[in-house]
């Protein structure tokens, strides 16, 4: 039962940082829902993938040190195998969630009427 909260601790802030950087006008609420969805989905990955993701997520959090947000944004565009796949996984899950739930979201995360409500 320890694993679930730790995965949330490791992945959720990273997902939020990526979303805020990629989609600068995304509302806090939408970003929060998308990050929660991403963590939920990562929990259901096949066991070896989940272990791999947990290790990479932990390394990213550790190396990010005191300014994790800036670090995540910089490294999230890396092309290094495995690490790039981790960020791609986060982007895939959260983008799919946002545009499936709110199909008229603009590419910067805003909506035509200025909100997702």
């Amino acid at each position: 039962m320890q694993r679930a909260p730790s995965l949330h601790f490791l992945v959720h802030p990273t997902a939020l940082s990526i979303l805020r950087s990629d989609l600068p006008k995304v509302s806090a609420d939408v970003a929060e829902q998308a990050a929660n969805f991403t963590v939920r989905r990562i929990r259901t990955l096949p066991s070896h993938m989940r272990i791999g993701v947990t290790m990479i997520a932990a390394a990213v959090r550790l190396i990010g040190g005191i300014s994790p947000e800036q670090f995540v944004v910089r490294i999230s565009h890396t092309h290094l195998p495995l690490i790039s796949e981790y960020f791609r996984l986060i982007r895939s899950l959260s983008y799919a969630f946002i545009w499936e739930t709110w199909p008229d979201t603009r590419h910067d995360g805003s909506t035509s009427d200025g909100s997702h409500l």
Binding site: S92, A96, W99, E100, P103, D104, T105, R106, H107
Partner: peptide
């Protein structure tokens, strides 16, 4: 090809392709 899947198809080049999502 719903909007969620379209976002995935554009994801690898989001900085160049992303604005197309508005035309899904």
């Amino acid at each position: 090809s719903h909007a969620g899947l379209m976002a995935l198809a554009l994801l690898d080049q989001w900085s160049q392709f992303g604005s197309a999502i508005e035309q899904w």
